[in-house]
Structure formats: structure tokens, C-alpha cells
Amino acid sequence: MSRSRAQSRGARLRGAGAVLTTVLLAVLLVAGCGSDGPSGPDGSSGTAKPAPSELNGNTDPTYRGVVLTPPRPRPQFTLTDTAGREFKFGAETAGKPTLLFFGFTHCPDVCPTTLADIANGLRQVPAAVRAATQIVFVTTDVKRDTAPVIKSYLDKFDAGLPNEFIGLRGTQSGIDAAQVAARVTLAEDEGRTHSAQVLLYGTDDYARVAFLQSTNGAAQIAHDLPLVAEAK
């Protein structure tokens, strides 16, 4: 094989590898939960579909999660917490390390696994970081996820942690506006197919890294959270 042909073949293979990486991340980006039954931390099973390419194959050795290109500013949206109070996300969490996740309480797989990863990751970081971090769960199931349902669900995961997980709900238009503000794919199928990203906002009010459901999700969060919590 000539040198020019070998170089051309190598370029094609590298291009194919980059495309495959992007496709795999896109497939994981939006998770569809396929059961109508309530779920706890041990749920398993589900499907997924492609989503936008903002979460991509670019890597940064600083982080263990998936790098966001470009970084996303902390979104501004207003919903209602489980105590019935107005919650302005941008103002309430400003300057605090914050993990934001969209999902629903009847999800049998992605949501409970992800929330368990978040809880386990928090338990592995220094106490000061753990105390400073806010966890916000926004339901995509407007019809079924009432305030008491969300509160009971999140209580399964935040036991023993210094900050309760904050559960938010609202009208369909309000939930849609929150997803648009956070730059995640809009949930479909009455909220059952939703973004699988956990966005991590730092003290500078930008999210530079996100997490997807994985076998080492808690370890990724435990590694990256102190980096953004202690950044100046």
C-alpha cells in the first residue's frame, strides 16, 4: 500500500471513530423509561434515543464526566418546590455547586440509578463540599408527580445527607421552559422520555461537565464535584 493510500485510510478510520463516539454519547443523552410502576433505588431496564450534540466526545483530563462544549450558564427558570413555594433556580442556587437533573418518579431505571449515583458521590466528597452542594430534581411528569409524591421519592435518596434533594414541579409550559433554559432536550411521551444529563454547575455559575448513567457514575461525581466547588 502506498504512503498516500495509507494516510487516506487512517484519516477515514479516525473520522469514523469520532462519529461513533458522538453517536454513542447522543444515544445516552436522552433516556426513555418504559414502565408505569413506581421505582426505588434498585430499578433496572429502559430505552434511549438520539439527542443534540452539545454533549460530545471532547475530553478534558481535568474531569471524569463528559465535557460540555461550550460551557452552559446557570439557567434562569421558576418552578414550585414540594413545600409549595416559588423556587427561582438561578437566584436560589447562584454561586453554589449544583447538580440539576430532569426525570420522573415512576421511571424504573435511569432516574433511580442516577439519583443513587448522586447520593453515593456526595458521600465520598469532603464534608464542606457536601454541605455546600445543592441537588435539584425537576419532574417531567406533570400529571402524576404531585408534591407529596416527589418528596417521598427523593427521601429515598437523600437520607443522611446535610441537604435535602430539592424537588420541583410546575405546569407543562413551565417545565418545558426550564428544559429550554438548561439547554436539554425536551421530554416527550408525557415526560417518560427525558434528558439523561446531570448538569454540574460550579461556583462561577457555569456547567462545564455533565454525567450520564454509567457503572462508575458515583466515582465521576465524587471526582469532579470538589473541582467545581472549590474553584475561585
Score class of each variant (00 low, 15 high):
T203A: 14
G90E: 12
G90H: 07
R123G: 03
P148M: 03
T203D: 14
V149S: 02
T22L: 10
R183E: 14
G95S: 07
G32A: 10
D189R: 12
G160T: 05
L212S: 04
D117Q: 08
D145L: 00
D117M: 08
T203N: 15
V27R: 05
A116N: 09
M1D: 09
V66T: 13
P73F: 12
G95A: 08
T113C: 06
L225I: 11
D36K: 07
N216W: 14
R12P: 04
T59H: 13
V19F: 09
S2H: 09
T98N: 06
R3E: 11
A127T: 05
H194T: 08
L161D: 03
A119M: 06
F165T: 01
R130P: 01
A177M: 04
Q179T: 05
F137I: 02
F157G: 00
S44M: 15
R123N: 05
G95E: 11
H223F: 10
S152R: 08
N58M: 14
M1P: 05
R64N: 15
C111S: 05
A218D: 15
A222P: 13
T146N: 01
T47C: 13
A159G: 07
A26G: 05
L161R: 06
L29G: 02
V27L: 09
V110C: 06
A83P: 06
T98P: 02
V136H: 00
D141H: 00
P226N: 14
V110P: 00
A187Y: 02
I166Y: 01
V110E: 04
V228M: 14
L68F: 11
L200F: 04
A18G: 03
E54H: 11
V30C: 07
R12Y: 07
K49M: 14
G202I: 04
L200Y: 02
L225D: 02
G10D: 15
T114Y: 04
A6L: 12
T185A: 08
S214G: 11
G32K: 09
R130S: 03
L99H: 02
N216R: 15
L100Q: 08
F101G: 02
